[in-house]
């Protein structure tokens, strides 16, 4: 198992803020919008240097999406930012009509996704956003795994023409990817090559998958771990290449098991190569208040649950 070490822990939302800081300096067309959550989205450095390119929308997310769509008419690249719940479910129709159907170059950037925002509880812990966003024709859906990857993804999507949903989170987690990585939309990242089971993970679950890989290694199981940061368009080739080798899959995501990465992977398998798949995901429920670690454990999303799922998947192999 390839060794992943880290010297610090950071939140992925800070990676977004750092990416925006860079974009503010590099791309004069980038405009940031926020619905009264500037501190949570880490936008201060961007705003300090580019006050004229920041639009405070107040607690009016629907209007923020519409204003963003309008800004693209005139060549601006709007980054509309708020919590994932308010960036998707609350404004689904606005995104559907004014952004996706109209094919506008809007970047919807959503923090506090999933269970790990923690104590605020289920009203804020959206677990359906990947599903909603990936169902929109033309929408690119990205869920990076750590601070460095989120920063790189933020910078990369400014150069991508078309609507993007970028999802990140609140908890501090290990920074284990390269600081100077090149982010390729739609390209899976091989975390560890293995032969016995493919663990396909996204977002915060990638670090959990690495920890699971180490536990499995101690049990004599050689896990292949793939980071799917882009859920749509999905790197089908990388997934199929991996299962040809391993013959079974675990998908891991901080999302409802219905409609997320797991279902996207299942579609690929059903169509191309039927192998056993186990889901590590929230089992069609809402979340609740708690610390991120407690929630990951209770809802079956931590390394221990990935290990169990991997063993189940391997046992199902013919």
């Amino acid at each position: 198992m390839k060794k992943y070490t880290f010297t610090e822990k950071k939140d992925t939302r800070s990676g977004f803020g750092a990416g925006m800081h860079v974009l503010g300096q590099q791309n004069p067309n980038v405009v940031a919008l926020c619905a009264d959550l500037v501190g949570s989205l880490k936008l201060e450095p961007f705003i300090k240097e580019n006050p004229e390119r920041f639009i405070q929308c107040g607690i009016s997310e629907a209007n923020m999406i519409g204003v963003s769509a309008g800004l693209t008419i005139g060549g601006k690249i709007p980054f509309a930012t708020t919590f994932a719940n308010f960036a998707t479910g609350r404004v689904y129709d606005q995104i559907r009509q004014s952004v996706a159907y109209s094919n506008k170059n809007v970047k919807i950037c959503a923090s506090h996704a999933g269970l790990t925002l923690g104590e605020d509880g289920a009203t804020h812990q959206i677990l359906e956003d990947i599903g909603m966003m990936k169902m929109l024709p033309g929408m690119t859906v990205i869920n990076p795994c750590d601070y460095n990857q989120t920063k790189a993804a933020t910078i990369a999507i400014a150069d991508h023409e078309g609507p993007v949903y970028l999802r990140f989170g609140r908890p501090v987690i290990p920074v284990f990817t390269d600081a100077d990585q090149k982010f390729e939309i739609g390209k899976a990242w091989m975390v560890n090559e293995g032969t016995d089971v493919s663990i396909i993970a996204t977002g915060h679950m990638v670090w959990e998958a690495i920890q699971a890989g180490e536990i499995l290694e101690a049990d004599g199981i050689n896990a292949e771990i793939i980071n799917i940061h882009t859920i749509k368009p999905l790197d089908e080739e990388a997934i199929l290449k991996s299962v040809e080798k391993t013959g079974c899959v675990v998908t891991a995501e901080e999302h409802n098991r219905i409609g997320g990465l797991g279902d996207s992977v299942a579609q690929v398998l059903v169509k191309n190569k039927l192998v056993p798949q186990e889901y590590v995901a929230v089992n069609d429920s809402f979340g609740e208040s708690g610390t991120p670690a407690q929630l990951l454990q209770k809802y079956g999303l931590d390394a221990k649950h990935i290990v169990e799922a991997a063993k189940r998947a391997i046992a199902r192999k013919q």
Binding site: I55, G66, A69, G70, I73
Partner: peptide, 27 residues
């Protein structure tokens, strides 16, 4: 045509964005 419309209530927001882009572009 520059934006889809039909689901009501969205056009004013879009127009405000387009007007803001014009200001940023000194248009």
């Amino acid at each position: 045509i520059r934006i889809a419309s039909g689901s009501l209530g969205q056009g004013l927001s879009v127009a405000l964005g387009a007007a803001t882009a014009k200001k940023l572009n000194n248009d």
